[in-house]
C-alpha cells in the first residue's frame, strides 16, 4: 500500500449534461481522518459511492488502499467499511439477523466490536430494523461497518438525526476503532462541529469540484481574522493588502479575514485610531462559507 489510502486522478461523474463530480484529484493520507466539506449537492456522496463501486465513474481513475476502483471493487469492499447517508437496511430483519447476515459476507468479523457497541449505543437486539430510529439505524450501520475491522472507513453524513450525546458516542467509537489503530477515515459532512471534532485534513467541495485541501490546523493557522472597531472611517487603501481575503463591515466595526501578511496588516490597523483591535483564528464555519460563496475561482 502506498501513502495514500484514497487517491483519485481527474475522476469525473456526469449525469447527462449535469456534472456531479469534476476532475477530482484527491489524496487522502493513510492514517488520517479526512473530511470532505461541502453543501448538499456538492458531490461528496458521489465520491464515496464511486470509491465503493456503487456509482460508475464517467472518466478518470480512483484507487482505494492502492486498488483500482474499476477492477478491484470486491477486494476494496472487503477492506473498506461504508456507511451511507440515512442507511436503509432490511426492515423485516431484527438486529441480530442483520448482524448475522453481514457477518456471513465477510472473511473476518469481530463479534466483540458488535457486542461492545450494541451495549454502548443501547441497541435492542430483538428489535426489527424498521422499529429503530434513524439515529439507531446509523449507529447499527456504523457497528456493521466497523465489525470487519476495515483499513478504511467511509462515512457519508453519518450523524444525521443524532442528538449531541449520540454524536459524541458515535465519534468516540470511530476514534477508538479507527484513528487509534492508525487506520483511515474519509468523512463527508456539512456538519462543521463533526469535522472539527475528528478531522485532521479537510477538502472543501463546491459544485462537484474540490476547491481546497489542507490540514485543519494549517487552515486555522493560515486563516486569521482581525476584529477592529475604528474611531472614524478608515482609508480605503487600508484593505488593499493582497493577504486580505475578505472584509465585513458593520458601522465602524470591521472583520478582516487574512490568509497572509498578518503582521503588516495588524500594524496598519493599529496605526489608525481605534477602540478595539483583536486577532482571532477564523472559525471553520466562516472559512467554509467563504469558500462555498467564492467557489473554485479562489484557487
Amino acid at each position: 500500500m502506498n501513502n495514500w489510502a484514497v487517491q483519485t486522478k481527474a475522476l469525473c461523474k456526469n449525469y447527462g449534461e449535469k456534472r456531479a463530480v469534476t476532475d477530482l484529484n484527491l489524496e487522502v493520507p493513510a492514517g488520517s481522518v479526512f473530511a470532505l466539506l461541502g453543501l448538499n449537492g456538492a458531490g461528496k456522496s458521489t465520491i464515496l459511492k464511486m470509491l465503493m463501486g456503487l456509482i460508475h465513474p464517467s472518466s478518470g481513475e480512483g484507487f482505494c488502499l492502492g486498488m483500482d476502483i474499476r477492477t478491484r471493487g470486491m477486494e476494496i469492499r472487503q477492506k473498506v467499511g461504508y456507511m451511507g447517508e440515512e442507511t436503509r437496511m432490511y426492515g423485516y430483519m431484527n438486529v441480530h439477523q442483520a448482524v448475522r447476515f453481514c457477518s456471513g459476507l465477510y472473511g473476518s468479523w469481530d463479534d466483540g466490536i458488535v457486542k461492545e457497541y450494541m451495549d454502548t449505543f443501547q441497541i435492542p437486539g430483538q428489535a426489527r430494523l424498521h422499529q429503530l430510529s434513524q439515529g439507531q439505524k446509523n449507529q447499527l450501520a456504523l457497528i456493521l461497518a466497523l465489525a470487519p475491522r476495515p483499513d478504511l472507513l467511509l462515512l457519508d453524513e453519518p450523524t444525521t438525526g443524532f442528538d449531541p450525546v449520540k454524536r459524541r458516542l458515535f465519534f468516540n467509537a470511530v476514534l477508538r476503532e479507527m484513528v487509534a489503530e492508525g487506520k483511515t477515515v474519509l468523512l463527508a459532512s456539512h456538519h462543521l462541529e463533526d469535522v472539527e471534532r475528528v478531522a485532521d485534513q479537510v477538502g472543501l467541495m463546491h459544485r462537484g469540484r474540490l476547491v481546497h485541501t489542507c490540514s485543519l490546523d494549517e487552515l486555522r493557522a493560515r486563516e486569521k481574522e482581525i476584529r477592529v472597531v475604528f474611531q472614524k472611517e478608515p482609508p480605503a487603501d487600508l484593505f488593499r493588502h493582497p493577504g486580505i481575503v475578505q472584509v465585513k463591515q458593520e458601522g465602524m466595526a470591521y472583520r478582516i479575514t487574512i490568509s497572509d501578511g498578518l503582521e503588516e496588516i495588524w500594524q496598519s490597523c493599529s496605526s489608525f485610531p481605534h477602540y478595539a483591535l483583536d486577532v482571532i483564528s477564523a472559525d471553520l464555519e466562516d472559512i467554509f462559507l467563504r469558500y462555498t460563496e467564492e467557489g473554485w475561482h479562489r484557487d
Binding site: L54, Y82, G84, R88, M89, G91, C102, G107
Partner: peptide, 14 residues
C-alpha cells in the same frame, strides 16, 4: 425501490 441496494452492494459481493 426500498433503497437497500447501496447497503447490499457496499458489502464484499460482486
Amino acid at each position: 425501490a426500498y433503497g437497500t441496494a447501496p447497503f447490499l452492494l457496499s458489502k464484499p459481493l460482486t
